[in-house]
Lab assay of single mutants.
Amino acid sequence: QGEKVEGLQAQALYPWRAKKDNHLNFNKNDVITVLEQQDMWWFGEVQGQKGWFPKSYVKLISG
C-alpha cells in the first residue's frame, strides 16, 4: 500500500506513455499533482486524468 500525500506537485522530465490502462500519460514539463507514492511508482493527476507513472520521470517542485 502506498503513502497518500497532499499538496505535492512534480514536473515531468520526460514524456511518458501509458503501458497499461491504469497508467498516466504526460508530456515533458507537464505539472502533475502527486496523490500517492510507492517505491518506484507514483499515482497522480494531470489534465483531469489519473494514473500511475514511474517516479524517475519527474522531479518534485513543491511539498
Rank of each mutant, 00 (worst) to 15 (best):
K28C: 08
F53P: 02
E45F: 12
V34R: 01
N27E: 15
E3V: 05
S56D: 10
S62K: 09
L13V: 15
E36Y: 05
N29W: 04
V58N: 02
G48Q: 04
F43V: 00
G48R: 07
Q1K: 03
P54R: 01
Q37F: 11
R17Q: 12
K59R: 12
F26E: 00
V34S: 03
K50T: 10
Q47T: 13
Y14H: 10
K4Y: 13
E36P: 01
K19L: 12
G2S: 13
I32Q: 00
M40G: 10
F53W: 01
P15I: 09
S62P: 07
G63R: 13
V5E: 09
H23W: 12
E3M: 05
Q11I: 02
D30W: 04
K19I: 13
L8G: 12
L24F: 03
E3W: 04
D21A: 13
Q38L: 12
N22T: 14
S62R: 10
K55C: 08
L60M: 12
Q37T: 12
Q49E: 15
N27I: 14
P54G: 00
N29S: 09
Q1A: 08
V31S: 07
S62D: 12
N29A: 10
A12M: 00
Q9G: 05
A18C: 08
K55L: 06
W42C: 12
Q11A: 06
Q9P: 08
Q49M: 12
Q11V: 04
F26C: 01
N25A: 12
G51V: 00
Q11H: 09
A10C: 08
E6G: 12
K28R: 07
Q37W: 08
V31A: 06
F53L: 02
W52A: 01
V58G: 00
H23N: 04
N27Q: 09
K20I: 11
E6S: 08
V46E: 02
P54F: 01
E6T: 07
Y14F: 01
N29I: 01
K4A: 08
Y57N: 15
H23A: 06
P54S: 00
G48E: 14
Q38N: 03
V31Q: 10
Q49A: 11
N25T: 05
G48P: 02
V46G: 07
Y14I: 12
K50D: 06
A10M: 07
N29D: 11
N25I: 04
Q38G: 14
F26V: 04
K59T: 05
V5K: 07
K28S: 06
V5W: 10
A18K: 12
K19R: 13
E6V: 10
V46D: 04
Q38R: 14
Q47K: 14
N29E: 13
G51C: 01
Q38K: 08
W42G: 01
